[in-house]
Design a protein around this nucleic acid. Structure first.
Lengths: 214, 214
DNA sequence: ATTATCTATAGATCTATAGATAATGC
DNA sequence: ATTATCTATAGATCTATAGATAATGC
């Protein structure tokens, strides 16, 4: 059986690292992603050098290019990793006609907030980087627009949502989406509050915006 | 009468500029601030060079240092300019015991969103720059915390807010603040919607979060 | 032989300062 | 004389590539 890269244990091919390899058990690429997540969110994307990322991942700057094409590559991977799970959940919820739309919308909000606030870094802050508007990240924007659309569909499937004019429903979907995004940023600033309860409270607030009485 | 700097018209002291001075009627410092606002919000702070700012303001890179101490100086000035007007309004509203707190909270939300969404650039996006966490911007954070506190005070002054437990009121103030902040970012993405109506809708959504029936 | 890593560095920046220059003001 | 600007540049980066090296695999 070939040694799984990243299990940390076995003999490793290739020249040994100059510094001790971190014992996180992650693959080298995932260690780079974790380092990038921390540095991009705490110091800023443009302000983070390839050297800083590589060295936090326990390798020399040039070695990074063995695993990723460059900084943009790291950012693109991190961005997609933040939306993909929520989008998968949204797909399931949209298909599940057996539950009231109110419940399903609440669950999507809750999970979305829990996912982003629960991680070790504030990856939500990456969404708003000006750099992310570039064509290079069109894939991410497409996925994100799909998630936004799922919010809108669940919203109009609620009783309160169905009673709204089309424009008004669109507007409220934007407000809900804005709440989710903003709350992720505020949560970080606020610091220590239980993530689960906070996510639940945000979901309730979203339903109040839609017009559901909670 | 000494010629007011920035009126654009009169004879100017000093070596002439190599390129035509923009005819915005702004002082050189304000032209730098406007250039920085555009570039920081569209390309990112760290990604914007002093040369880019200076040249957009119609002067050579080195000349910028005659007016500002550097890039950080520009960012600090822009940040404070976004909170100061809302904080002044908040002060007036807190002092005005003659109006129902519901109305005053609504007005603060509306004005805050209108101010940030109404400007030519998305200055709200500067709040979330990781660079802004540095000690250098402590002044800004102090002012911003005051604004957050004003939201909290108006919230507990409403009938619905007064009925909440202390923790729950704090939580909802964070949610309202998160909504305002997030909405500013979403609005930009959403593009063309009338700012006034959007600000009003956000204010209504904030009151719903508090628990007021609107 | 293959692989993962290293060291070294060319080329391209970018910031901030030094010192020159071309106006007006008196 | 004062002021606002310019040109030039030293010093400090940072990215991405070239080429060497030290392991394992067969």
């Amino acid at each position: 059986m070939p040694s799984t890269p990243g299990t940390g244990g076995g003999r490793r091919v290739g020249r040994p690292r100059a510094t001790q390899r971190p014992d996180t058990g992650l693959s080298a690429r995932d260690e780079l992603l974790a380092a990038a997540a921390e540095l991009f969110t705490t110091r800023g994307y443009a302000a983070t050098t390839t050297r800083a990322v590589a060295e936090r991942a326990g390798m020399r700057q040039a070695t990074m290019y063995h695993y990723v094409a460059g900084k943009e590559d790291l950012l693109a991977a991190l961005l997609e990793s933040t939306v993909t799970p929520s989008l998968a959940l949204a797909g399931e919820l949209l298909a599940d006609g057996g539950r009231p739309a109110e419940d399903r919308l609440r669950e999507l909000c809750r999970a979305d907030v829990a996912l982003l606030c629960g991680g070790p870094y504030n990856l939500g802050a990456l969404y708003v980087l000006p750099e992310v508007r570039a064509e290079r990240f069109a894939d991410f924007h497409r996925v994100r627009a799909e998630l936004r659309s799922a919010y809108g569909q669940l919203l109009v499937a609620t009783d309160a949502g169905a009673a709204l004019a089309k424009d008004e429903a669109e507007l409220r979907a934007d407000l809900v989406f804005g709440l989710i995004e903003g709350v992720i940023l505020v949560h970080l600033a606020g610091g220590e509050r239980a993530v689960g309860a906070f996510a639940q409270a945000t979901a309730d607030a979203a339903l109040r915006i839609v017009g559901v009485t909670v």
